[in-house]
Every structure is written in structure tokens, then in C-alpha cells.
């Protein structure tokens, strides 16, 4: 394999990765900068991280974001999973094509439009904007992502598992919780994680639907950056990157290990 690594290949990979990661690397490096000026290096320090904890505004925003992300991801997972089940199972109901299109439309809908239409709705029904409205908006746009993830798992789901459960005496609801859900759980969990991340870094929709007292972290960062980038922002962004990276790497490692174990078991079983 090494033999086929031409100079061109190496160059394109280096360039590609630089394009993707250089900005992030710079951000991480400058978060450890001693200087107050973002672009001038003045030695290593972690003072901005400790200062971060003192910044009540940022901490509040982070707390709001975490709560919004947790609640919206959880509700979106329930709704998205139900939608996915309805779409894969009841293949013959009237208007299924329309319904499928409508569930998946928000995937390609410009966020500005989603945000604006939600804003208009909240204003029209006199819903006071704040924590509730951001959460609702996030549920709306992330549930279709969950539906996509769960649906793709359900398409390969062996229906005879459910039939077997019912045949053995489990009514439909019990069958769902004892057989269907445990089997599709990995897809549901990754749907939840996807919804959580989407909510975590959403700026556009949150800006439209949020109100006083419910500023999310991306909104806070964006408004602060407009007044000039501070090293504190770099620090909190580095933490965010760290959280997301650890999450992603852990999830894929667990998955990988499970798969390898499974493969090994199957081979062992075949040998007898």
C-alpha cells in the first residue's frame, strides 16, 4: 500500500487536512495564550480557562445550552423514533409519500426559513419567547434527523423478531419495549447524540426563537465576537471541541470494539 503513495497524494492529504484543521488548531493554541490580544503570542498560560469560570454571562449561556440540548434531544428522539416506526411499518397508509417528504423537508430547509417561520408562529399565538421556544424549535428541526437515523436501522430490522415476541405471548407494547427498542437502541442513541450536537451548535434558529434570559452559548459567543475576539472565547471553544471530540472518539471506539468482538464470536461459533 505504501508503494502507491505518490508525492501528489501526500500533498493533497496534507493540504486537505490543513484546510480542515488549521483554523481549529490555531484556536486551540491561542486559547493557551498569556496575552489579552488574540493574535499576539506571549507565552503559555491557562489563565483564560480560570477566568472563564468567573464569567457569569458565558457560564449562564453554557448552562442554558446544555439544558436546551438535553431536553430537545430527548423529546426529538422520542418523536423521531415514533415517526420512523410509522414510516417504515405502515407502508400502506394514505398520504405516506407526502408525510415522508414532510418529515424530511427540514433536513434541506434553510435554517433561516425554519427560524423565521417558527418566530412568526410564536408571535402569532402570543407565545412569550424564551427557554421554551428555543427548546421547541430545536425539537422541531432535530427530530427529522433522528427519524432518518432510526429509519435506516428499521429498514434492516427483522420483523419476525417482533412476531416471535408476540407469538410467545407479548402484547404489542411489551414487544416494543422488550424487543424492538433494545435491538434498535444503538440507532436511537446515535440519533439522540446527533440531535444533542445539532442543538448544541445551532445559532441561526436559536437567534430567531430565543428571548431574554435564554441566550444560548453560540449566541453569546457570536455577540461577544462582534465586540472583538477575546481569549476567553478561544478557551470555551476549545472546551467545546474537546467535549465533542471525546464523545465522537469514545462512541466510535466502543462501536469498533463491539464489532470486532462480534466478528470473533461468530467465527468461534462457526468453528464449534
Amino acid at each position: 500500500m505504501n508503494a502507491s503513495w505518490s508525492r501528489f497524494n501526500i500533498a493533497s492529504i496534507v493540504l486537505g487536512f490543513a484546510f480542515l484543521y488549521l483554523p481549529i488548531v490555531l484556536l486551540v493554541i491561542y486559547s493557551f495564550n498569556e496575552s489579552r490580544l488574540v493574535t499576539v503570542w506571549a507565552g503559555f498560560s491557562t489563565r483564560w480557562y480560570s477566568q472563564l469560570l468567573q464569567n457569569q454571562g458565558l457560564m449562564d449561556a453554557a448552562w442554558v445550552t446544555a439544558r436546551v440540548a438535553f431536553i430537545s434531544a430527548s423529546v426529538a428522539t422520542v418523536l423521531g423514533t415514533l415517526a420512523a416506526i410509522a414510516l417504515t411499518r405502515h407502508t400502506r397508509f394514505r398520504g405516506r409519500v407526502l408525510f415522508t417528504g414532510m418529515v424530511f423537508a427540514p433536513l434541506v430547509m434553510p435554517e433561516v426559513i425554519t427560524g423565521l417561520s417558527l418566530l412568526l408562529l410564536f408571535v402569532a399565538i402570543g407565545f412569550e419567547r424564551g427557554f421554551m421556544t428555543v427548546t421547541l424549535a430545536h425539537i422541531t428541526f432535530s427530530m427529522c434527523f433522528v427519524a432518518v437515523v432510526v429509519q435506516s436501522r428499521l429498514l434492516t430490522f427483522d420483523r419476525s423478531l417482533e412476531e416471535a415476541a408476540m407469538d410467545l405471548g407479548a402484547p404489542p407494547v411489551k414487544t416494543f419495549f422488550q424487543v424492538t427498542l433494545p435491538v434498535i437502541a444503538p440507532a436511537v442513541v446515535s440519533g439522540w447524540m446527533l440531535a444533542f450536537t445539532l442543538s448544541l451548535d445551532d445559532l441561526v434558529i436559536a437567534s430567531f426563537t430565543s428571548g431574554p434570559g435564554a441566550t444560548t452559548l453560540p449566541m453569546k459567543i457570536y455577540s461577544q465576537v462582534r465586540l472583538g475576539v477575546t481569549p476567553e472565547i478561544n478557551a470555551i471553544c476549545t472546551i467545546l471541541i474537546g467535549v465533542v471530540a471525546v464523545g465522537v472518539i469514545a462512541a466510535s471506539l466502543v462501536n469498533k470494539r463491539r464489532e470486532v468482538q462480534r466478528l470473533r464470536d461468530e467465527q468461534a461459533a462457526q468453528r464449534g
Binding site: D158, S160, E163, A164, D167, G169, A170, P171, V179
Partner: peptide
Amino acid sequence: PPYRRPVNMMFQSYALFPH
């Protein structure tokens, strides 16, 4: 419904619960 019938079935795919 199937869950109240005094019959049981062995499926072609076996349909063993993987978890």
C-alpha cells in the same frame, strides 16, 4: 391476536432475540 393463541411458532430465520 397472536399473543393470546395457544400455538407457538418456530421461525424460518429462527428470530432469536439478539440482545
